[in-house]
């Protein structure tokens, strides 16, 4: 490509420039606007916020009031913390379920690996909304599980599962499991069987081999998988809305309600800015890990 591009630098600029302009305009710039609106005052108008520069006094109307409000009302702090907690617990549950599956696929006969991987991926191609909705019919008071348990005589009255935090955990694990399994598989399949045999020959039991060889070698995949579940789960809206109860506090739901129900655009923007700030650390961690694994396997 060197020769061609030296003579036609404009081709090179187009290849980089077109996606760059699109993403700058429609991805980067909007964040700046969110930041700006989060510093504006709300108003009973369309759109429902005051301009920075007032019409009459030409004075800067920027304010930190929205952020101050986030601090004073405990609802918001509770929603952020609860989102982090739910995302963390669900991520751990995903890891517990995804690890055996990824390990099993990595150790299956090579011709089976592609088929098993496809079986993991296919559910994530079907509608996310539909997959979350499916659990409403399973967990409900008259749902599949309760009907089965009642019929078996194991319970006298339905166990309340839908509209609880439990249902939210189930939904997150179900929806995000493929994102955990794929990076885990990618690292586990690279582990040399000879390493494990050598460890066993040297007297290590299966538990020791797992803890001291497999886990350290899979650390990169574990981190990547956990971030792929944890980061989107924090801002999740559909799952807590459909499966969670009225008291299931998650920040994605709060943002949605502030925006659509209360029409508090500046406050919703402030919620988004703080959420993005919270996500910076895990996003950086994920990016760092990706760059390292790419350098490692080049």
């Amino acid at each position: 490509m060197k020769g061609g591009d030296a003579t036609r630098p404009w081709g090179r600029w187009l290849v980089i420039g077109i996606p760059l302009v699109w993403l700058t305009l429609f991805f980067l710039l909007p964040f700046g606007i969110v930041l700006k609106i989060s510093l504006s005052q709300g108003a009973l108008a369309i759109p429902p916020f005051q301009p920075w520069f007032g019409m009459e006094d030409q004075w800067l109307n920027a304010t930190l009031a929205n952020f101050r409000f986030l601090l004073t009302d405990n609802l918001y702090a509770a929603a952020y913390l609860n989102s982090l907690k739910i995302a963390a617990v669900a991520t751990f549950a995903c890891l517990l379920m995804g690890f055996p599956l990824a390990l099993g696929i990595a150790r299956a006969a090579p011709r089976w690996q592609a088929v098993l991987l496809l079986l993991v991926i296919v559910p994530s191609w079907t509608s996310f909304l539909i997959r979350v909705y499916a659990w409403m019919g399973i967990l409900g008071n008259t749902g599949v599980i309760n009907t089965l348990l009642l019929w078996l005589g194991l319970i006298d009255q339905p166990v309340v599962m839908l509209r609880t935090d439990f249902a939210v955990y189930v939904g997150i694990v179900y929806a995000y499991l493929p994102f955990m399994v794929l990076p885990l598989y990618a690292t586990l399949v690279r582990i040399e069987p000879a390493l494990l045999e050598a460890a066993a020959d040297l007297g290590a039991g299966p538990a020791t081999v797992f803890l001291r060889i497999v886990l350290p070698l899979a650390a990169g995949g574990i981190l990547a998988g956990c971030m792929l579940v944890f980061i989107p789960a924090i801002g999740e809206f559909v799952i807590p809305e459909l499966l969670g109860g009225a008291d299931t506090l998650m920040i994605g739901k709060v943002l949605w309600q502030e925006f659509f129900n209360n029409r508090a655009w500046p406050l919703a923007s402030a919620v988004a800015v703080v959420l993005l700030g919270l996500l910076l650390a895990p996003l950086w961690l994920f990016h760092h890990q990706q760059a390292r694994s790419m350098a490692l396997h080049r």
């Binding site: 909007p30 964040f31 606007i33 969110v34 989107p232 949605w256 923007s269 996500l279």
Partner: peptide, 18 residues
């Protein structure tokens, strides 16, 4: 690659404001 991991509520809100 950032849009892969940014929560949808943020992407949606920011685009609307734009």
């Amino acid at each position: 690659t950032a849009p892969l991991l940014i929560p949808e509520v943020i992407t949606g809100l920011s685009l609307l404001l734009l």
